[in-house]
C-alpha cells in the first residue's frame, strides 16, 4: 500500500518536473523569438551598409554594438505610449527613403519636422495600438477588442482636425471639403455642431471623443471601428442603423471620405495649453477672407462657429 503511494508520488514528481522544464523552455524560446527582433537585425545590417566607419566612427561603432531592444516613445500629455519605432526604425531617416517597409522613411518629411516622432509618437495621428509589438497587434488592420485601427489613407486628415481647427491654415483640403459638404447637404438641419443645428439627429460637436464601444456594429461590415461605422453609415444609414430617420445622400466615395473625415475631427477635448494658438493673426489671410465670404454666401452657415471665432478675435488681439 505504502509502496503504491510512493510510486504514484514519484511519477507525479517526474511528470511535474518534466512539464515545468518543457514550459520554461517554451517560454524562453518564445521570448527570444519576437516578431520585431528579425526586423531590428535586418535594419542594423542595412544601416551599417549605408554608414561609413571612417566619416563617423562613433556612430558606426554604436550601431555595431546595438542589441535588439524595444523602442518606446512616451507622450505624457497625450497619454500615448508608442512602440511603433521598434520596427519602423528608419521613419525619420532620409537614408531609408527607398527602403521597404517597415523601415521606409515617412512619406511627408515636412510634416514630421513639425511633429517630431520623439515628441509625438505615431498613434496620435495614425491611430492603431501603440503598445503592440506585432504587426497584427498594432492594428495595422482592424483587430477585435481594439477599437481604434490605423486611420485609412483617405481619412488621415480627420486626425489633423482634432487639434488644428483652422483647416485652411494647415492645408487640410479634405476637411475643408467635408465641412463644405456638411453645409451643402444641410446636415445641420438635423445635427447640431457647436450650438448650431437641429435636434433631430444626435449632436456631433464631440463626435471624435465618442467611445467607439457605444456604436452598434451589428450591420457594419469589416472591422468594428468608428471609422468603418461612419463610412458605412453615410453610404447607407438605413442599413447600419435600421429605423433611423436619416436617408442616404448621393455622394461619391471620395465625398463620403471627406465628410467622414470632417465629422471624425469634431472634438471638444481640451488641448494642452501649449498647443492652443497664443494669438490669432489680426488680419485674416486673403484665403480666409474668401472662405468667410463663401461661408456667408452659403444658405446654411455655421454662423455660430464663425461668430464664435469672431468674438474670440478682439480678446485674442488685445493680449
Amino acid at each position: 500500500m505504502e509502496k503504491a503511494v510512493l510510486r504514484k508520488l514519484t511519477s507525479l514528481c517526474i511528470i511535474c518536473g518534466v512539464a515545468v522544464l518543457v514550459l520554461s523552455g517554451f517560454a524562453a524560446f518564445r521570448d527570444g523569438e519576437r516578431e520585431w527582433m528579425p526586423h531590428q537585425a535586418h535594419y542594423k545590417e542595412q544601416l551599417l551598409k549605408k554608414l561609413s566607419p571612417v566619416k563617423n566612427p562613433i556612430l558606426y561603432q554604436r550601431v555595431l554594438r546595438t542589441q535588439p531592444e524595444i523602442k518606446q516613445i512616451v507622450v505624457d500629455e497625450w497619454g500615448a505610449v508608442d512602440r511603433c519605432t521598434t520596427c519602423h526604425l528608419g521613419i525619420e531617416d532620409p537614408l531609408f527613403a527607398g527602403a521597404a517597409q517597415p523601415f521606409k522613411t515617412h512619406p511627408y518629411p515636412e510634416l514630421l519636422k513639425k511633429h517630431p516622432v520623439e515628441k509625438y509618437g505615431c498613434t496620435i495621428c495614425h491611430g492603431g495600438q501603440g503598445l503592440a509589438t506585432t504587426y497584427r497587434g498594432a492594428a495595422h488592420k482592424g483587430i477585435e477588442h481594439w477599437p481604434v485601427p490605423m486611420v485609412a489613407k483617405g481619412m488621415m486628415q480627420s486626425r489633423c482636425g482634432v487639434c488644428h481647427k483652422d483647416f485652411l491654415a494647415i492645408g487640410a483640403d479634405r476637411l475643408v471639403q467635408g465641412r463644405e459638404i456638411f453645409k451643402q447637404m444641410h446636415c445641420a438641419g438635423c445635427h447640431r455642431i457647436e450650438k448650431v443645428g437641429g435636434d433631430v439627429g444626435p449632436e456631433l460637436s464631440a463626435f471624435a471623443d465618442k467611445d467607439p464601444g457605444n456604436f452598434a456594429y451589428a450591420n457594419v461590415e469589416g472591422s468594428h471601428s468608428k471609422q468603418a461605422w461612419v463610412m458605412q453609415h453615410f453610404k447607407d444609414p438605413q442599413k447600419v442603423t435600421p429605423g433611423t430617420p436619416m436617408r442616404p445622400y448621393p455622394m461619391t466615395d471620395e465625398q463620403i471620405e471627406c465628410l467622414a473625415s470632417y465629422v471624425l475631427s469634431l472634438s471638444q477635448k481640451e488641448m494642452p495649453r501649449q498647443y492652443t494658438p497664443k494669438e490669432q493673426p489680426s488680419a485674416p489671410s486673403p484665403q480666409a477672407h474668401a472662405w468667410t465670404a463663401a461661408a456667408q454666401a452659403a444658405p446654411l452657415t455655421l454662423a455660430g462657429e464663425l461668430s464664435a471665432s469672431a468674438a474670440d478675435q478682439p480678446e485674442r488681439s488685445s493680449k
Partner: peptide
C-alpha cells in the same frame, strides 16, 4: 525524479528572474 525536479525548478527560477527584468 531528482534531475527532472531540479532542472524544472531551475528553469522556473530563471524565467521568474527574467520576468522581473522588464524589456522596457
Amino acid at each position: 525524479t531528482g534531475t527532472a525536479l531540479a532542472l524544472g525548478l531551475a528553469g522556473a527560477a530563471v524565467e521568474c528572474a527574467r520576468f522581473l527584468k522588464p524589456n522596457v
